[in-house]
Design a protein around this nucleic acid. Structure first.
Lengths: 262, 262
DNA sequence: CGTAGTGTTGAATTGAATCAAGTGTCGTGG
DNA sequence: CCACGACACTTGATTCAATTCAACACTACG
């Protein structure tokens, strides 16, 4: 068990304050007037390893647009590529549409993470990206980022690292999808969310899912029904507690064991 | 039907000359003494969009090592990352080992393609990479590539594009693994090999598979048996002809239809 | 308060895995 | 050059994990 507040957790009702992405900051997390230098995400996002002066230069090209509300699209499949985006608050999903209309989720994005890198090679975005809740972003026009990277070796290095990280991560998902069972996928997904959540919020064991069961299924290559069943099964085993979008990882080590047993 | 030579194809025996990677060049394809400027792969590999002088600079940092033979490792999982590699001739696969010893293939690499990008973010390679046949490579020490990229905006741009391409490709595989049937995966795999083969060899409809059925299965998230069955099924439908490692795509448009029907 | 979207649960079905038993192919050394 | 052994591949019978189909419950929002 962990040391998070356990007040009334078993009543299973009421509005317990959660460390969800949208409730992290004291101040409004969607605030547009924050520079890279003062942004609490700057360790995750681009500015890491840059000097004060360099951060200022980056700050100049970053555009902080109006907030997005649930369902708003950042860009759509085959829109012309022009920028990458850092999540400032809230969350997004990216997806592609099959020929017969079904959607397949290709990624979820939490604060500090970079979206739109799939468009760098071609002139167009390869997927659509949409806000899962009220959210805000930093837009980084790519051709300006390239120009600046050319002046700042640290920035070039860091962006290579960000892209390399995306590649490594995508290959882990390849392994997951090609050899894990439904339970292993789901456990791995929850653990992944846990560590990503904990980087921007408080507890690695307690968080809100910004996406639907259906989104999770489309991401993991499972049906909604299966995701739902696995959630109840894990709950019955006492490993997690789920109530709607609220998740509590009760036995995080046992969850890890499920994934590693593969 | 296509226009490739159909001499005795139905006899199903004998050494029919094929446009496999190892049989493409008149000269020895593993020849170490070729500069980037004169390399026939330079459109696929790094030098694209570089000036003559720039290519010369790149040439300086590229190391052309001795050839690799089947089963030789280029690097192993958790080796220290130091270089990316371009395939010059032959082919490679990358894979990871599960806790219980099973291997999962994460990628195949044909001439002109870049290996090792999964190591850029961390200090270590995330997978092992091994030659599938006699093969040769160009080693590009990454820290030198970064330094040079900083001097040559074209090179920086091109390497961003290569990595972006890898990201986009990995996400297509994500979709494939999460929603395609065994037949769709296999058809898509053959079509992918077809277009990649045709970039370095002659025919998009006739090529040799450098990997085993088992490799294909581990890559596509299927068992060997399933891959084998799908091959025979596609053959029975008259869409392909397979004899051992030799593949002939007889009805490439129907194959495309299988994939797109998804 | 009603309705659309989201989530759960059960029963039947099925696509691919598993288990099993072969045959085919290739490289090696006698 | 042939025989041997290891590995690669194929095919069939059976099993099983996850999907599909179906019905219903919950929740959140206008």
């Amino acid at each position: 068990m962990s040391s998070v507040n356990t007040d009334g957790g078993s009543r299973g009702s009421g509005r317990i304050p959660l460390n969800a992405a949208t409730a992290v900051d004291k101040a409004c997390p969607h605030n547009v007037n924050i520079s890279c230098a003062s942004c609490r995400l700057n360790e995750l996002c681009l500015p890491i390893a840059l000097s004060k002066a360099e951060i200022h230069q980056l700050d100049e090209i970053v555009q902080r647009n109006r907030p997005y509300k649930k369902g708003d699209h950042l860009y759509r499949q085959s829109d012309e590529f022009k920028s990458v985006y850092a999540v400032r608050s809230g969350s997004f999903k990216s997806y592609v549409l099959g020929t017969s209309g079904q959607s397949r989720v290709t990624g979820f994005f939490l604060p500090g993470e970079i979206m739109g890198m799939d468009g760098i090679a071609s002139k167009d975005y390869a997927n659509s990206t949409v806000a899962l809740e009220h959210a805000s972003i930093c837009e980084i026009p790519f051709f300006q980022l390239e120009k600046l990277s050319h002046q700042l070796p640290n920035l070039q290095h860091h962006f290579f690292a960000i892209m390399g990280n995306e590649i490594a991560k995508d290959q882990q998902i390849h392994t997951l999808l090609s050899s894990y069972t439904a339970e292993e996928r789901t456990a791995s997904f929850l653990l992944g969310l846990s560590s990503r959540s904990s980087r921007v919020s408080l507890s690695p064991t307690r968080f809100l899912l910004p996406m639907t069961r259906s989104d999770i299924g489309e991401y993991l290559g499972l049906t909604v029904e299966t995701v739902s069943r696995i959630f109840t099964a894990l709950q019955r085993k006492g490993l997690i507690k789920v109530r709607n979008r609220e998740v509590d990882l009760l036995e995080i080590d046992t969850l890890r064991a499920i994934v590693t047993t593969n």
